[in-house]
Each structure stands twice: as structure tokens, then as C-alpha cells.
Design a binder for these strands. Structure first.
Lengths: 336, 336
DNA sequence: TTGAAAGCGCTAACAA
DNA sequence: TTGTTAGCGCTTTCAA
């Protein structure tokens, strides 16, 4: 049988309370007592029973991570980082998928309310501020582009990152930059791209902004197909995600453009497949480890009693330059 | 406060035992009693406290899924399927990564032994039969290519699937098939490829088998680079995974081969990015949902008392034909 | 078929 | 600073 707290107490010649104090790092434990207890723990190979602890504490020991799709490597590696960060707070992470649909995001929020979980980290795509009006008392932190005044949030500076990306395109001699992403004004990555153009006294013409509804490569490909069919000049494309970029490259090449010789392409996310693509994909790499850590910190802070205080944390990012934006550029190529 | 079992019992005018019987679907409960209880449950919105239940049952409510890397979409979608299947058995799934290293796989096995979990599903890469000599009493089921006599296993017919893939290449007029995968004799996908060749009276020459150590696109690319440098004829490549295939295509195209015109390429796994690649990738699609379901069933069976009985289950697969194996083939192309 | 009550292993109020 | 003990909410043995 596995040793219990009582066994440790007996062996150390102290009470259960004392052992509990040691395990939970309470202050006010004399050094000699502490060492007696830790020795007993070692000798017995004692490990606390999580179910019992959670029951006594009124915790469930589980937090939920909601992401659009786990089979998008960006979210998968985010999930792994969160699992690691949550372990330190002795939380299991339960992963759920939303497919980016508002109905599913609402459903998760509803689950948070019925409080069989200790907290929720939600990577939000379609949720609106109003949906959070009567937010659950369960600790909640949102990830992703959208940031609401009423809820903790962890993200990166999407606009700043996009600005960096587009500046890079412009710095390497590109002139006609297409931006593939979400709705203008709403999508911070599009906003950032616009501002980089503005810095050079240029504007993002309506034709140069391709608004996509979905996240897959096919969405990027179709958008680019439509753009190219219209016959506009282009020598660079900034995409809001790497997956979109893969589709965009497919479209460009099927239309006879060379990448990066004729058109440079920049993605966003830094997924492992970027290196297997032809050309390898330049991108923005968010610091996912930091994001995960900040999310767990937020949950822990909300768990502590005290006046609620909403915090919006910003994690780092960096630009990764690879083949797809090599500086061979002329201006405004046409199909070969 | 959340309603407890006792509240339900009081409201229904029965004992806790009776409510417990209803909840756990015990036989021998009169229909009238059952309906009284279910009504009370509905009215109160009662949900069992999982920690308490696990404590009483001596369960932890958690099973572990060990995969090489979660940011490989194959494993990510497998993970999601397992989460769904495990939910039915009211298990949380804790995901762990092994990076395919034997040391990490052994560490997980060790964790299974110290039994803070109810079961383990391990997608094994490097583990050996001997490592399982004193296997933990915790229910364990292995996924992946390797199958050991002493442990439950769920997989697909890798050799059969590979045979299907290579037959497809041969049926579309290809003659010089390169196989990229693990060690000959050990890797069932290589074995299956060989047998497909044997059916046509051909053999897999040593030069035509590229043994790779890793799983990434770069590994595939390097292997293909080396092969092409040697100047052998080739008009088809079968790769043990899609990721390898992406690297192989990169190499081929950088060496001036057109895919599929000069060389057809076939992958294995069916990851979402196959559709964003140029050309879109033909592949083998294992039935991951079935794999997950069978794995959970195995765990449940092992949990039940009774004589241990090892079972090896085989899930379905199908071939998915896309652009990368379009039937335009001549025989044995050379660089343009 | 249903009820009473003793745990499951840990936490934390209250005492000492 | 440490000990005693009453829960946390559910399962399950034994009786009825």
C-alpha cells in the first residue's frame, strides 16, 4: 500500500498537522522538525494523494485550456508549455477544442461557471465583450488577439509584431505588399501592417488587403487566387499565420510566380513545418513559454482572495528571417 | 453552494446509498425509486464531485498519454480523440512528451509504476521489449509500430498500409521507388513497401532505402539530398511520414525534379498541412478515432479484475490520393 | 431493494 | 510551534 500522511507522521514522531505544514511550506516550522519530517517522507517514498487534497481544499485540481484546434502546431506547443507551467501549481490541464466558433467558446465559458474546474485559459477567436458580461467567478484568462477590459489577458503585441514583419519586407526592397488576415481595424496584425506602410508614407489599398474567414492553407490559397486573377502587381505578402502563408505560396507558384524571387512571403506563428516548406518560411515567433507562464500566474492571482484587479500581460516575440523573404527583390513582378 | 449527494437523497426521500446506486447504474433499483432520484438530481442540478468519488474509489481520475511531440499534428489529433474517448470513462487525459527518446519513455513507465494515475497510453518509439520486463501493475497500452507480446497494443497494419501505398505508386506506372523510413526489418512501413515490390518481382535495393534517424522534414530532405547526389534514377518516393515527405519534396524540387511529373511522392499520417503543400500530398490516413477508442477500452479492460489477457488491436486505415502521386509518370526521370 | 455508517487521505479550525 | 479532530463528498460493506 502507498504510504499515507499518517504513516509519515508516525515515523517522524509528529502529528499529521506538522507533516502537512512541512509539505505545504508553511512558515513557523522549526528546522529540526522539518528535517525529521522530510527524512520520513524520503524513507517512505511518500507522495500526497491528489484526490484527497483536492477534496479537502475544495479544489478540483484541473484547469481547462480551450484552443481552436490542437492540430495546429502553434496551439499544440502552447498547450505543452501550459501543461508544464500548470504542473508547478499542481494543476492538470484539460484541453478542449473550439474550432474558433463562438458557440463553442460560449459553451466553455458556461462550463467554467458550473465550477468543476479551478480555472480556464481560453484562446479566443469569436467571443465578444458582451459575452463576458456575467463572467463566471472561476478564474479566467484570455489568450489571443482580442483583449477585453473586464478579463485578464495574455498576448503579444500583435500590431507591433506585424509592423516588424512588414518593415522587414519593405527594408528588403519590396514595394507592393499584400496583407492576408482578418478584418481591417479588427485584426491587430492587419493594423500593424498598415502602420508599417504608413511609416513609409504608403497606404494599404483595399485591393491589397485580403480578408480571410478561415485559418487553413486553403483559405489563404483561395484568397490569393482571387487577388492574382484581378491582375494587380505584387512583390510581397504578409500573412497573419504560417498556415495561411503556405496556401498563399501554393497559389503564387501555381500562377507562375517564384518565391521569393518574384514575391516575398512572410508568415506568423513559427510552426515546425516552416522549415520543411519550399522556400522555408520567414515568420514571427511569439514566446509561447512566456505566454503560458503568464497565464498560470494570472490564474493563481485570481485564486487568491482580495479585490479583483484585471491585468493584461504582454509576452515577447521576435522575427525569424528565412528563405521566403530573401532579399532578391525587384519591384512588382509579373508571371513568368 | 453546489448540491451534494446528501441533498439529493434528502429531496428524493431516500438514502445516499440509493442515490449512489442510481448514479452508478446499479441494477436492482425499482423504477419508481429511480425516477424519484433522477427528478431530484435534475431539480437540484446535481453533479458528482469528482475528487470525492476518486478518493472513495481509490482512483485518481487521470490517465497519461505519452507522445513524441504534440506539435506533430498526427499526435495532436490523436490526443484530441483520446481526450474524447477518455471522457466517457470519466478520465482526464494528461499529455506528456517523450521526443521519441528511450530515456523519456522509460521515465513515463516509471511514473506509471508509482501509480498516481489510473492508466497510461504510450506512443512508443524507442522502447524495447526488455524495458517492459517488470511492467507496472497500472493499466498500460502501447501505440505505434512496436508491438510486444507482454503488453496491450493498438495500432494499424503498418505493413499493409505501406503495401497499399507502394502498390499505388507502381499501379500509376512508377518503376524506381525510393523508400524513406526507419531501419530495414524493424520499420513495418519499410517492410510493407518491400513486400509490395516483391509482389511485382522487384526488390528494394540497398541504395533505394533511405534510413532516417529523425522525424522532421529536414531529416527527409538531407536523406534525399544524399541519394540524389549519388545520381540514381528515381520516379517515386514512399515516405514513412508526411513530415519526412515534405522535406523529400523540398530536396527533389531544389534538385530540379518536378513533383509529381518526374517523381511521385507518397506520405503517411494525413496531417492537415498536406493540403497546403505544393503539390498536395497523397498519404495513408490511419483511423485515429478508432485507435483512441480501442486504447481506452484496453485500459478499462485491464482495470477490471480477472486473469490478465494481453490484446493487440488493429485499427483501420485508408489511402488518400492527391496531387503528389498524379499518374503522369514516365520512368526514371533525370533533372531538368 | 434500501438504509446506516465507516472509511478514502488530506486540510484547517481550534486548542494547547 | 505543534497536536487534535471535524469535516471535504462519495462509495461500499453489512444489516435490515
Amino acid at each position: 500500500m502507498r504510504p499515507r500522511l499518517a504513516d509519515v507522521a508516525a515515523r517522524a514522531g509528529v502529528s499529521m498537522k506538522t507533516v502537512s505544514n512541512v509539505i505545504n511550506d508553511f512558515p513557523h516550522v522549526s528546522e529540526s522538525t522539518r528535517s525529521k519530517v522530510t527524512t520520513a517522507i524520503e524513507e517512505l517514498g511518500y507522495r500526497p494523494n491528489v484526490s484527497a487534497r483536492n477534496l479537502a481544499r475544495g479544489r478540483t485540481g484541473v484547469i481547462v485550456l480551450g484552443v481552436p484546434r490542437l492540430d495546429m502546431p502553434y496551439f499544440a506547443s502552447l498547450a505543452m508549455q501550459l501543461i508544464t507551467a500548470a504542473e508547478a501549481a499542481s494543476w492538470w490541464v484539460q484541453i478542449r477544442q473550439t474550432r474558433g466558433e463562438r458557440a463553442n467558446e460560449l459553451r466553455l465559458l458556461e462550463e467554467a461557471r458550473d465550477s468543476r474546474i479551478d480555472g480556464m485559459v481560453l484562446s479566443v477567436v469569436a467571443l465578444r465583450e458582451a459575452d463576458l458580461a456575467d463572467r463566471p467567478s472561476t478564474p479566467l484568462v484570455l489568450l489571443g488577439e482580442h483583449r477585453f477590459a473586464s478579463v485578464d489577458h495574455v498576448g503579444i503585441d500583435n500590431a507591433g509584431a506585424a509592423r516588424l514583419a512588414v518593415r522587414h519586407l519593405l527594408d528588403t526592397g519590396r514595394r507592393h505588399v499584400v496583407v492576408v488576415g482578418g478584418r481591417r481595424g479588427a485584426d491587430q496584425r492587419v493594423v500593424g501592417a498598415e502602420s508599417a506602410l504608413a511609416e513609409r508614407g504608403e497606404t494599404l489599398g483595399p485591393a491589397m488587403h485580403l480578408a480571410v474567414e478561415g485559418v487553413t492553407g486553403q483559405h489563404g490559397e483561395q484568397a490569393m487566387d482571387a487577388f492574382l486573377a484581378a491582375g494587380h502587381a505584387v512583390d510581397a505578402v504578409f500573412c497573419a499565420t504560417d498556415w495561411l502563408a503556405m496556401g498563399v505560396i501554393r497559389s503564387l507558384r501555381l500562377h507562375g510566380y517564384r518565391v521569393p524571387d518574384d514575391v516575398a512571403v512572410m508568415g506568423f506563428d513559427d510552426i515546425p513545418y516552416d522549415l520543411a516548406a519550399l522556400p522555408t518560411l520567414s515568420t514571427i515567433a511569439p514566446d509561447r513559454e512566456q505566454i503560458a507562464r503568464l497565464a498560470v500566474e494570472s490564474l493563481l492571482r485570481q485564486e487568491r482572495p482580495g479585490p479583483p484587479e484585471v491585468r493584461h500581460a504582454v509576452a515577447d516575440h521576435r522575427i525569424v528571417v528565412r528563405e521566403s523573404t530573401a532579399a532578391t527583390a525587384p519591384g512588382g513582378a509579373t508571371p513568368t
